[in-house]
Design a protein around this nucleic acid. Structure first.
Lengths: 203, 203, 203, 203
DNA sequence: GATGAATGAGGATTCATTCAT
DNA sequence: TATGAATGAATCCTCATTCAT
């Protein structure tokens, strides 16, 4: 069917390669964790010569960082989007949205947890990422809960995020109990937000 | 039955050796994580010949498993103890006790998290451990909250444990905000238990 | 014969390219030595695509050889020039001229030493180069010292060259002692030539 | 013949291994130079597993340093020995002895030159070595030439060493001309020392 | 011809594990 | 039984060289 595809432009090829590598890296990091993952396997899974892999990512850490950066961007965007919808949402709706948001991140980028927790190297990225998430959530909370002071919002955000981290675990539970667990988690988050709102002298 | 042989003290010596190794292993695993930890360093830190180390723990994984097993026992015992005190406690008291319990486990055995999350090898131990924890907590909940059905108790326990996992993170926050975060987390756990109790039509 | 084609300037362009590459190569070889130098860096420093670099010099060794050849030519020319001036010079003057000559070669082409000493590959060039130098110096000596037999001249030349090699080292001594060392070396070379002359029953 | 040699003590075995490794390293470094030499080849040539090689020498550089240190010790000892014999020797004898000394060092440790000149890593060792050699020779000169001031002795020593470096080259010349070259070099060194002595107002 | 992406052999180094002593 | 030297597979990474565009 495709007659003589004039072979995709160099740039495009490079882009695809990078995408393939990142996908493979996500898979391997997810399966084995940062330390146990090997560049060789990532190369093999993405059908890339090891040398080429290193052309794009000069270091295992650089690769992890790139992945984390992408993840961070997605998270940031998701949070920003959510923030814009806050005015039109109920507190419960926001709670649910936060859970859904984590669920999405998790399903797409479960590896990030592994990478964020990896000891080695520049925690720089990791710290910045955490901070960004916290600020994003805190910002949403401030908008959602009238009277919530910024400092308090930050605290609630941190606890909320720790809680939402649990979503990661829940998502990987046996499918049987998964739905039930999610429901429970959802109601807990709602409960927490409502409580926070009340404590802030809300609605 | 067996006459007192001079080998008898060997048993004792072996026990000490094993203890020393495990202590060293805890330290090294905690500092470097499972992958980065080396058997050689563990041997050195416990003043054990590498050969002897391998006599007691034929594999790095075996060592990790032993550590995890010990951790699991402690957790189990702690939970059992807590369970006995349930009748004399308020729901809030139980909530606090659970947080304290996690805090204790965490401070004493922070390495366990690293080991539990280590992908490699027999998740057998890990799964069993999780299950034990869940059952333990569920059992406490059933006793604490009249009318809570076992199935529901299990669900609440799982969510609670995920939440309590956050304690781990909170404990490693900057000391400045740590206290505040802990207080917040505590009140959240209380809130959750109270809510669960109400939903169960409890007290 | 061939009509003026637009390809004509290409020749010129190629020449420039080659010159740029060689300059970059000199720099890199000098800084890092033969082994540690990389074709990629040489390409980059001369703003040449790696592919083009390989068009001109099909091998790292070929590049080194080209550099060495150029160096050899310069040395040869310098020696030839010096030879022509011999009739008008005193023995001492010639001694000084030889030291200066080595100093010049050294300052301009310090990398050559590194390349000459690089074991790998075709010592062919290197041997030829050495021979040329020896013959050049021997030739000067024969002219400068009446009665010096060619065979003896060659021997003196070889020893002289080994000595002059020391100039390389002296030039890289700490500036403080450098001047003094050079003076000393100069007087030694003079001494040697005078002695050789006397032994030959010269002037 | 050998019945049941109780297998040489561990320590002894280790010593032999180290010796074998160093010998192999000398060979490989000599043949290929520092950069081109590979740990793998050194291991293979000394019939040592690569891991064992690294147990004794944790780094390629460490191996080179060890070699250099051994070389330096030999040089130092040789020089010290020579120094003691100075009182009973003529200047010419000393000149010859210096040449012989270099010849010995060279024949036994020709690789050292390659290592001393290797760019990478701790020039520390190299500098210290050079300085030791210079001081050793200067010390001999001070004793041998009455009236030679220490500062001047140092200068002469440096030039002398540069010259003697030439011995290295001469020794690797074609055997045919080698003897002749050596004779010539010898007489040059004598000449230099005598001249230095005269300039110092000697004998 | 020019370009630079792709290749993969090869190098230094680590570490779990074995086994001779 | 205790010891620690020995082993070698496996890891990360580099770089000369090729070749499709």
């Amino acid at each position: 069917m495709e007659p003589a595809r004039p072979t995709e432009p160099k740039r495009e090829r490079g882009r695809r390669r990078v995408a393939a590598i990142m996908e493979a890296a996500v898979a391997v990091f997810t399966e084995k964790g940062y330390d146990a993952a090997t560049m060789t396997e990532i190369a093999a899974r993405s059908s890339t010569a090891i040398g080429s892999l290193y052309r794009f990512f000069p270091t295992k850490e650089a690769l992890a960082d790139a992945l984390l950066l992408r993840y961070a961007l997605q998270a940031k965007n998701g949070l920003a989007e959510l923030q814009q919808q806050v005015p039109e949402m109920t507190l419960e709706g926001i709670a649910d949205a936060l859970v859904d948001f984590m669920l999405l991140l998790q399903s797409q980028r479960g590896y990030a947890t592994a990478l964020v927790d990896a000891r080695s190297g520049s925690d720089d990225h990791r710290k910045r990422f955490r901070e960004a998430m916290r600020n994003g959530v805190a910002s949403i909370l401030t908008k959602a809960i009238a009277g919530l002071k910024p400092a308090k919002a930050k605290v609630v955000a941190v606890v909320l995020l720790h809680m939402l981290k649990g979503v990661t675990g829940v998502a990987s539970e046996e499918p049987a109990s998964r739905a039930m667990l999610l429901t429970e988690l959802r109601s807990l988050v709602r409960l927490y937000l409502v409580s926070a709102s009340e404590r802030a002298g809300g609605k």
